[in-house]
Design a protein around this nucleic acid. Structure first.
Length: 588
RNA sequence: GCCCUCGUAGCUCAGGGGAUAGAGCACCGGUUUCCUAAACCGGGUGUCGCAAGUUCGAUUCUUGCCGAGGGCGCCA
């Protein structure tokens, strides 16, 4: 049990003894560290309801506390705050318990859920650019967060591979190479084994055809027709789709691997194509939910209490082809069948209405019962300083590969300046530069709140000092260095003893908050809760590091205790960084 | 027009029903015979967009207004 839960239970008991609900006993970290370590504000709210004086109630609670030996001081302050300072011995025992456990004090979740995180969602047609960065690293971080919290989690890339963009790419290739067998309806196969295009070709073709479809209605119509034909199994188009799919996946696997993003499931819209027709049929005939409207098939999802008009969800276009909505609904159907009871869609905030519609339809149709949590875990866009979506100075999008090179190069220059790194072998320098550059990039992005739009700032991603990823990596590296030297000198960690130095106590107090931080991050699904806390842990460690010279400490008991303390710190930091998708080098 | 999100220090951003609203950057100064100075220490900034309401207490919750971004049936 975490220290906050332990204290809350003790205070809850005291409130109950005073005739108040135990929820009033909630203990939280003090907002005034110079006054106390922890505080309990329950008396203020409870006194009003009970018609009692808050200070008197607070005092009654203090009088009712049992096992008082763990407190160094207890005070009623101001209008009725309870300020709590615990003994150094109690802190040491809590830290020891954390060090002894294998999960850094993180309790098993109740209930344990089977979670699917849907993120990344690249189109088949585009190489990755900075726009994909947020979706990928926020999703990856949330997936890891839920796993660390003890849930069963799978991450699904959910590629956009069955909609209009494929139809567009089909007609674009036909325009360029009409003689290819894929376009000959009479061709009976077999189709060529080698792909007629590379991903670079697709990336180049896509914006061209999108632009043409926007300007020429007949082209848009052809793309729709091609999409319909593909979805209805036209062999040439399926064969071509397979090539598009394979070249995209091959490239994306490389890109995501380089980013440190690991999907458990490489599914996409196309995965559920067999389910689309039966689903629409079921909604029309069995459930009587879907109906024809202007030639399209729709589900009405509006409610009486809607403050605004809620457009219906489209299941098919008037030509019978399927849309994003259809595949999303069918995908959810599959996920529920597979037993997931929480589905997080880590998708751009601008798709909020779409998900509202899909979720409503899923509830109405019984595809997702209320017991299955559905959440659009939205994120904001990356903007230029003028508020427009981010573009490079040349007006194009910044490719992810180029951004990675920029941050890696910056990290390598920084490494070149470091005296200590002069004798590192080249391959290690490369690895460090990549880890540090990526660490700066990920931390820089994840430290913004998920939902807020933020301004793209290259300097932020190439800054390695202050509140940055490398600051955290550096703290971990320092600890690894200490532990390495300690091993060389034959020193071993020992029991954690009562802290005597302020910086030591501060570090322990910080580390003990980990379980609540994880809970909070899970609750709000926000990695920046972790970045904030990780920075505080690293800062408290650095202060401790400056104040207490572990390897020079003469008292062997204290030295052994400190070795355990920094070992625990390293475990916490590593856990946090790993959850953020940031690797820690051995040295830097 | 309607709906959603946002508005916090010079800049970039956190925070959040409670006591004196924070951090990084930037600026000035200090720390290296000692475990990695990508570090540490010190120095000062705010009508928390505006106005009402709820509350013992609001920057936080509610409503309205102003401002920014986004969304609103056959794109994803």
């Amino acid at each position: 049990m975490s220290i906050l839960k332990d204290l809350s239970q003790r205070f809850g008991d005291a409130f109950v003894a005073a005739g108040i609900d135990r929820s009033a006993g909630l203990v939280v970290p003090s907002q005034r560290p110079e006054l106390a370590q922890y505080q309990c504000n329950g008396a203020l709210a409870a006194a009003k309801r009970a018609g009692r004086n808050p200070r008197d109630l607070a005092q009654a609670v203090l009088d009712g506390l049992t096992d008082r030996a763990i407190y160094a001081s207890l005070d009623v302050a101001g209008p009725g705050f309870i300020n709590i300072v615990v003994t150094n011995e109690y802190l040491a025992s809590q830290a020891q318990a954390m060090e002894d456990g294998d999960r850094c004090g993180i309790d098993a979740p109740d209930p344990k859920r089977k979670v699917l995180v849907d993120y990344g969602g690249p189109n088949m047609s585009k190489s990755m650019h900075v726009g994909h960065l947020r979706a990928s690293i926020i999703g990856e971080s949330l997936k890891r967060l839920f796993r660390v919290a003890g849930h069963e989690v799978a991450g699904d890339i959910h590629m956009g591979d069955w909609g209009m963009p494929i139809g567009q790419l089909i007609i674009e290739l036909e325009r360029r190479h009409p003689g290819l067998p894929y376009f000959d309806a009479d061709f009976t196969g077999p189709y060529p084994e080698d792909s007629p295009v590379t991903l670079d070709d697709l990336s180049e073709m896509y914006p061209v055809v999108v632009e043409r479809c926007r300007n020429e209605p007949e082209e848009a119509e052809r793309a729709r027709q091609a999409t319909f034909d593909l979805q209805n199994g036209r062999p040439g188009y399926l064969a071509l789709w397979r090539h598009y799919h394979d070249v995209s996946v091959a490239e994306q696997k490389k890109d995501f691997e380089e980013l440190g993003v690991e999907f458990d499931l490489w599914r996409g819209e196309s995965t559920v194509h067999d389910r689309l027709a039966p689903l629409v049929d079921r909604l029309m005939n069995d459930d009587d939910l879907a109906f024809e409207s202007d030639g399209a098939i729709v589900v009405q999802v509006e409610r009486d209490d809607d403050k605004t008009e809620m457009p219906p969800l489209l299941l098919t276009r008037s030509d019978g082809s399927y849309l994003y909505s259809t595949t999303d609904l069918a995908t959810l159907d599959q996920r529920v069948e597979e037993g997931y009871d929480l589905v997080l869609y880590v998708v751009d905030a601008r798709q909020g209405l779409h998900f509202e519609q899909v979720f409503r339809a899923a509830r109405l149709a019984g595809i997702a019962p209320e017991s299955v949590g559905l959440e659009h875990t939205a994120f904001g866009t990356v903007n230029n300083p003028d508020g427009t979506p981010f573009k490079t100075r040349e007006g194009g999008v910044l490719r992810l590969a180029d951004l990675m090179k920029i941050v890696t190069d910056a990290a390598r220059s920084r490494l070149d300046e470091a005296e200590i790194a002069q004798d590192y072998p080249d391959d290690e320098r490369d690895r460090i530069a990549r880890q540090v550059g990526l660490g700066a990039l990920k931390f820089g992005d994840l430290s913004n709140h998920r939902t807020s739009n933020y301004i793209f700032d290259l300097d932020r991603f190439t800054a390695f000092e202050g509140k940055t990823g490398p600051y955290l990596q550096y703290g971990a590296v320092r600890i690894k260095s200490i532990l390495r030297r300690a091993r060389e000198e034959g020193l071993t960690p020992g029991p954690i003893v009562a802290p005597t130095v302020d910086q030591e106590r501060g570090l322990i107090l910080r580390l003990l908050l980990l379980p609540e931080i994880i809970e909070r991050a899970v609750e709000v699904k926000a990695p920046n809760v972790l970045t904030e806390y990780a920075y505080e842990v690293a800062t408290d460690f650095n202060r401790f590091y400056e104040a207490c010279h572990i390897l020079r400490e003469e008292d062997p008991i204290r030295q052994a205790s400190w070795l355990s303390l920094v070992d625990l710190t390293l475990r916490v930091l590593t856990l946090l960084l790993d959850t953020l998708g940031i690797e820690v080098p051995e040295r830097m």
